Amino acid sequence: MSPFLSPVRSIRSLLPALALLLAAGGAQAADAPKVVVSVKPIHGLVASVMQGVGSPKLLVKGASSEHSYTLKPSDARALAQADLVFWVGESLETFLTRPLESLGGKATVIELIDAEGVEAMNLREGGAWEAHAHDDHKPGHAHDHDHKHDHKHDHGDHASLDGHIWLDPHNAEAIVKAAAAALSEIDPARAETYAANAAATVARIEAMDAEIAAAVAPYRDTPYIVFHDAYQYFEAHYGTSAVGSITLSPERQPSARRLSEIRQRLAETKARCVFAEPQFTPALVDVVIEGTSAQKGVLDPTGANVPEGPDSYFAIMRDIEKGLRGCLAPQS
């Protein structure tokens, strides 16, 4: 008999080992926690923490708005099968309030507006306001604002809070840490992976924060108006000068009186830009700037055109920075 095995016999001898490896890999993938996330910026942060383990499911995709979203059957199935659900809270994703209550404890639900380290802000009233104070802002340092929310609160007052918490990078860091802690709780075997991913993500946020602060610094005193009041966390953190919004809530059409007030605000402040959002009709912006020297730009707090995944949060923040610079810079 030949001292060498034939190629066929060699392959056959390896089949049991290969089968075991494939089974182990399949079991490992199957063991990845089933995670559902409400909106894209939060999804991006959670996906970054879960790199190498699995991918969370995003509910509000594309140009859909969290303010008017309706769950699809596939969304309801994902929630029913979830081990872990991340959302901001009832002040933002009202469409999720009842579905989450109906889960009956089957999934761990993390309401991020309550996460440790997140500083929530109260909703502003009216469409015109004073720009945030510019008291020596430095990236990486905490800021005190009179309208920051005290976390010693009852759950019933969440409706009065602004849910766009991720637009402050400090809050984004807190969200990352909360995600790592929640994932480690339900999946302790991968706790080290989650912790390492979280540390890398926080470092990336800190670097991005410093770069955005430097990029927008020349335009901090340049007034502008936004489509809806979604950006005050960004404004407070970076000291930019938003002076009003066309509408407080995008699902409500502004009245003729409101449009008149914003046009007056535009004239008084000499705001250089009025920003639309891709999810909503730009016609209202055209009405506001008609007959003025103001420019029209686009900002998007949730990244309608940004691909979902672990880079999405960073792309959303960079796009806001670029949108501001592109419109606020003096026109040649």
Rank of each mutant, 00 (worst) to 15 (best):
R9C: 04
S10V: 06
S13G: 05
S13I: 14
S13Y: 12
L21N: 04
Q28C: 00
V35C: 09
V35H: 07
K40L: 11
P41T: 01
H43V: 02
H43E: 09
L45N: 05
V46S: 10
V49N: 06
V53G: 00
G54M: 02
G54P: 00
K57H: 14
L58E: 08
K61Y: 12
S65Y: 09
E66M: 15
A80C: 14
F86K: 06
V88D: 10
V88L: 01
S91W: 13
L96W: 02
R98K: 08
G104R: 01
K106R: 14
A107G: 04
A115H: 04
E116Y: 06
E116P: 13
A128C: 13
A131W: 12
G140M: 12
H141W: 07
H143P: 03
D146N: 13
D150G: 02
D162A: 08
I165N: 09
W166D: 06
A172Y: 10
A178S: 05
S184Q: 14
D187V: 09
A189S: 13
E192H: 14
A196Y: 11
I205H: 07
A213I: 05
A217P: 05
R220V: 07
T222Q: 10
I225R: 03
I225Y: 01
A230L: 11
A230P: 03
G239I: 09
T240R: 11
V243M: 00
I246G: 02
T247K: 08
P250E: 05
R252W: 15
R258W: 11
E261A: 12
R265P: 01
E268D: 09
T269I: 14
F275Q: 00
G291Y: 11
V298G: 03
T302A: 14
G303M: 04
A304T: 15
P310I: 12
D311N: 08
I320F: 05
K322D: 00
C327S: 02
